[in-house]
């Protein structure tokens, strides 16, 4: 595989979920985490899952990542049943999950080293490309514990992008960051989405964040986890977090969310 083809934009993934249900059984009882989820996501779509905590957003993301097994229903990526994790679908978590025994570059190289056809030199070049894309050139040799929370998430983003996945799965990746850092990352993530054309599944409990980032916002309700409503966000990009049009859309979704949180007696 050449460097050019490695850096080329791969065709983004499409996802089909039909009748997906998932139960967790623990010694404290059974939880219906997801019930009858039906959702199709098109190539290159940026889709946000929102909903109160415990409504199964992470579980659904983890099913797509194949980190969660034993569900019922059909879950397909590009027409193929999801069976095991793969680098066509990388994941970014709320906790950075970076490897502390590796430096920044080592972390970004981790997935690349699992691609045998790349030469060492090409891997380095690819890793540097992504570090630059997330705005971290010059930090290659830094240790993870020396970075700020925002920088750690940038490294995690570079690490998830480096294997050149067709689908990026993000589970509340910015939830632990301060507002300023978050807003910068919204801009950068939109740029990266435009440049790299990936399908993105993004979990958040922040409605404003979902409206700012998503082409669509999927609202979940808990116990059992179900899709309550789907919204299409037609606002032009790039979107500013403090945009007025966005605020009114967010207010509409938040209104819906409130009816979930305070169900009719």
């Amino acid at each position: 595989m050449s460097l050019a083809s490695e850096l080329a934009v791969p065709p983004p993934s499409k996802i089909r979920l039909a009748g997906v249900s998932k139960k967790f059984t623990t010694n404290r009882g059974t939880v219906q985490a997801l019930e009858d989820i039906n959702l199709e996501i098109g190539e290159g779509e940026f889709v946000c899952f929102v909903g109160p905590s415990g409504c199964g957003k992470s579980t659904l993301l983890r099913i797509v990542a194949a980190l969660e097994r034993n569900f019922t229903g059909t879950a397909e990526v590009n027409g193929k049943m999801i069976t095991e994790p793969g680098r066509d679908r990388t994941v970014m978590f709320q906790e950075h999950a970076l490897f502390p025994w590796l430096d920044v570059l080592g972390n970004v190289l981790f997935g690349l080293k699992l691609k045998p056809d790349l030469s060492k030199k090409d891997r380095l070049e690819v890793a540097r490309y992504y570090l630059q894309l997330v705005g971290l050139d010059g930090f290659e040799r830094a240790n993870i514990h020396e970075l700020s929370g925002g920088m750690k998430q940038r490294v995690a983003l570079a690490r998830a992008l480096a294997p050149n996945p067709r689908l990026l799965l993000m589970d509340e990746p910015f939830a632990a960051l301060d507002a300023m850092t978050r807003e910068q990352l919204y801009g950068d993530l939109q740029k990266i989405h435009a440049a790299r054309k990936k399908t993105i599944l993004f979990v958040t409990h922040n409605v404003r964040e979902a409206v700012c980032l998503g082409d669509r916002v999927i609202l979940f309700s808990p116990r059992p986890g179900r899709i309550r409503k789907k919204f299409r966000i037609e606002l032009p990009r790039p979107r500013e977090f403090n945009d007025v049009a966005m605020a009114s859309l967010a207010a509409e979704i938040t209104g819906e969310l409130k009816t979930i949180l305070a169900p009719a007696q």
């Binding site: 990542a65 994790p85 793969g86 994941v91 978590f93 906790e95 999950a97 490897f99 997935g111």
Partner: peptide, 14 residues
């Protein structure tokens, strides 16, 4: 070891 290391690695093909 936090399970998340194993999970992150497995999504990168390890």
């Amino acid at each position: 070891i936090p399970p998340i290391y194993r999970e992150a690695a497995s999504t990168m093909g390890s």
